[in-house]
């Protein structure tokens, strides 16, 4: 992690969040995006995160991407990570119907409850399109859901890398298009990507050792 310097090497810092049922491929999407690789990954315990520097729309961006565990009992923990996110990616598996129905039953409600950001950009991602023969959720269903909930939408495959970069790119472009989110992410605003809670009153004089 780079320390706080007076000259940040990016224009904006955005906090993104990956949510969705267990096993839909949230961590795999993130690994494909940040390291362009695909592996047998272990289930995420609690919350994980990765940072990626990208240049999108002519801006140098630092993306802090939080990856959450899908299992229900971790939700008390993961709910605190919605705070302050500029973008939220809802992932489902096109070969498992439950993971799609849970978007409206569970995940969209979680966003309404915990996201503190009115303008936060939501993106719906249907993963595992490489398993076309096992597909049970059609593309049209995804489009309809996205329209109803006002999200962006893409289908992708972390395995074959189809559309993975586009997922993050479209999301970030939309964030860059939203003035209130842009103001939050501006590098001039002193902030800490680890901060989940409002800063402690004595944190103003802090300087890293």
């Amino acid at each position: 992690m780079d320390s706080a310097s007076s000259q940040p090497d990016f224009d904006y810092l955005f906090k993104l969040l990956l949510i969705g049922d267990s096993g839909v491929g949230k961590s795999s999407l993130l690994l494909r995006f940040t390291s362009d690789s695909f592996d047998d990954l272990s289930p995420t315990i609690g919350v994980d995160f990765k940072v990626k520097m990208v240049t999108i729309g002519g801006k140098k961006l630092k993306l802090a991407i939080w990856d959450t565990a899908g299992q229900e009992r971790f939700r008390t923990l993961t709910s605190s990570y919605y705070r302050g996110a500029q973008g939220i990616i809802m992932v489902y598996d096109v070969t498992r119907r439950d993971t799609f129905t849970n978007l409206s039953d569970v995940w969209a409600k979680e966003i309404d409850l915990y996201s503190t950001n009115q303008d936060c950009i939501k993106m719906l991602v249907g993963n595992k399109v490489d398993k076309e023969s096992e597909r049970v959720v059609t593309k049209k269903e995804g489009i309809d859901f996205a329209r109803q909930y006002g999200c962006l939408f893409l289908e992708c495959s972390a395995k074959t890398r189809v559309n993975v970069e586009q997922c993050f790119e479209e999301l970030v472009l939309k964030i860059l298009d939203t003035p209130s989110l842009l103001a939050e992410g501006s590098a001039g605003v002193k902030k800490n990507i680890f901060k989940q809670k409002p800063p402690a009153p004595d944190a103003s004089t802090s300087s890293c050792c």
Binding site: S42, I45, G46, V47, D48, L77, N192, F194, K195, Q196, K197, P199, A200, A203, S206, C208, C209
Partner: peptide
């Protein structure tokens, strides 16, 4: 205390970074 203060400054005073270490005893 110095380490603790440093973690607080970074916003990690809740020690959630150690969540997984305890859950699976450092297996990851």
């Amino acid at each position: 205390p110095k380490l603790h203060q440093h973690l607080e400054t970074l916003g990690g005073g809740d020690y959630l970074f150690a969540f997984r270490m305890f859950m699976v005893l450092f297996r990851r």
